[in-house]
Design a protein around this nucleic acid. Structure first.
Lengths: 338, 338
DNA sequence: ATTGGCTTCTACATCGATGTACAAGTCAGG
DNA sequence: CCTGACTTGTACATCGATGTAGAAGCCAAT
């Protein structure tokens, strides 16, 4: 594999001259530049990134830490972040924690400190009481709701407001027995979305009813939604609407509802959260909260870029992306029902 | 940031001794080892990966190049490959090409040659006539069907056989007007799966009917499946089954079918390909070809590991993962219909 | 006492690119 | 012809970790 030394030899100049050409040092004779570029071309030379990194102390790589790519939300988020990072010339390492505490802590331990310039981290196991772990000595941007108020920049959406709006949409349709699927007693999106749900319900003059709030696990997969829904049906508590704290939960719930013979939305209206692509193709299409994922991705990358560049304000920023409610047939029905 | 030199100073030994401790060199006095480890601990020392890489010529990073993470198949594949790579102590860079030819070529140009030890590449734009581009000087493993017979190791499934089995399943149900959604005139999975479809149809004594074979684009998204299905319905050609060349195509088609008032599977049976998690939760659940994705991931990583280690046979390997047909209600109906 | 085999540790060169210091060359103005 | 400003190129140290060579200390066997 050709090195700069080889290029220099072939071009008949010194190593540093080659380096200068490659780094756009202004004072290079045009003929010299051409000689060097020709030699590089002939040899198929590529710069050794490790060597440059060793000197520069930068790698041009950032890490994205998510629970798992199998969840469409995180797959789409990773897509958006990789694209946003590419506009800055960065490469992205994707790490999966599986929502396992130990693996999340490992990501904060700095084991990769020299490998990446910064980290975008979406915690699931680590919670608000553990912000101590966020005192790290590398640029870090947090996503999601699990850990706010930590000593780091943070990008999320207004979970309480968004959940409240989603629930309000169901209330506006005249529904009063609204199940909330996604609560798991774990602080974070689960609790803030629950708070929004509760706020809407109570301000509509309804009583909180815990039989409408099954507990689910940490991971919001379709199966979790299906199991929670089955539990609700088994309990025979009356239900005329479901708010799934994310789309996969809602889709799992919808599956069980349809399977049990319920009509959606005539018998039970369903709304989800995240607006993943699948919502547009489920039967019926699923209403959902659109969380502005691309905006989140771009913002997170921008904040990280500032910190890596040593810029940004002293205090840590808390940025809320815009959300909208996407209304589809799972709440308002199709043309034939309208 | 502490370096090995700092650790050595604190422990009262030479730099190399610290290095030896960290690399499990056998002849180290226990007391020395303890001193070194204590110093490392006190200083919070982390090894500089770039420096080690510069010496070793290895980075411990591999690149995974896929069209896009938003497609569940590739999201789940990435998940599996990241996990498989982790068992070898590797980190994974995920690159998205969007199926754009130029970006795929760029990935093969060796621009990242020094950054990664090897590449797992799932091409979409590049095709069988362009295997010249695969003469690269870094370890490479290809996935999928777009480019076989290239000068590289290759992991895929028996697309012809699998597609034939899927189609045969529909034939066994007595269907004779089987639409094939996914053909796009592009050599690769699209053509091999089509070949399997055609082989099954013809060996059942049926004539090939091009009105059953709409053309779709390069990217097998849900929308593509929906549009193709709509086209079929508009053409009024009789149809009693659909074979989607992947699950998202099939799900898009199913959406349009249900929307048009067709019952699945009574009026039209539907089968997909890839067995993504979503198939178990669609309504009705979608029959699909299970391609042994985890096996593919493990195999690809193993092959790459061999090549990186300088091992493996001289000739290039073509490995076919096992497939099975997962039969669900979209073809055989539910209990109530059985 | 000497030899040879271990064990334990040190000094030094090296991986490839880049910053610093500086030398050599060019050119205009006096 | 000299001076000084400016251009163009070279030599060398350096980033942090590791392989090589080998020194020094210890022990048992001769």
């Amino acid at each position: 594999m050709a090195t700069m030394r080889d290029v220099a030899a072939r071009a008949g100049v010194s190593i540093k001259t080659v380096s200068n050409v490659l780094n756009d040092y202004p004072y290079i004779k045009e003929s010299t530049r051409t000689k060097v570029l020709t030699a590089i071309d002939q040899l198929g030379y590529r710069m050794n990134i490790s060597a440059r990194n060793l000197r520069a102390g930068r790698t041009g790589i950032i890490a994205l830490v998510v629970p798992e790519l199998s969840l469409p939300y995180f797959a789409q988020l990773s897509d958006a972040i990789i694209e946003a990072a590419a506009t800055k010339g960065w490469t992205v390492i994707v790490e999966q924690t599986g929502g396992v505490r130990e693996r999340e802590l490992d990501m904060l331990s700095g084991a990769r400190r020299h490998l990446v310039d910064g980290v975008i981290f979406s915690p699931l196991a680590l919670g608000p009481g553990e912000t101590d772990h966020l005192h790290v000595d590398f640029p870090l941007v947090l996503l999601g709701e699990r850990m706010s108020n930590g000593p780091v920049d943070h990008v999320t959406i207004s979970n309480v407001e968004a959940a409240r709006a989603a629930t309000q949409h169901l209330l506006d349709l005249g529904r009063h027995r609204i199940a909330a699927i996604g609560a798991n007693g774990v602080a974070g999106a689960a609790t803030t979305r629950f708070d929004g749900y509760l706020a809407a319900v109570e301000s509509a003059g309804l009583e909180r009813d815990d039989t409408l709030i099954p507990m689910v696990g940490l991971s919001w997969h379709r199966t979790a939604g299906a199991e929670a829904m089955q539990e609700l049906l088994d309990s025979s508590t009356p239900i005329d609407a479901v708010f799934g704290f994310n789309d996969t939960l809602a889709l799992g719930a919808m599956h069980v509802l349809l399977r049990s013979g319920r009509r959606i939305p005539e018998d039970v209206a369903v709304i989800g959260f995240d607006n993943i692509e699948e919502t547009r193709f489920s039967m019926p299409p699923l209403s959902s909260v659109e969380p502005g994922q691309k905006q989140i991705a771009r913002t997170a990358v921008d904040l990280l870029a500032e910190r890596i560049g040593g810029g940004g304000p002293e205090e840590y920023r808390e940025i809320y992306a815009d959300f909208t409610i996407e209304i589809r047939e799972s709440t308002i029905g199709g043309r034939e029902n309208a």
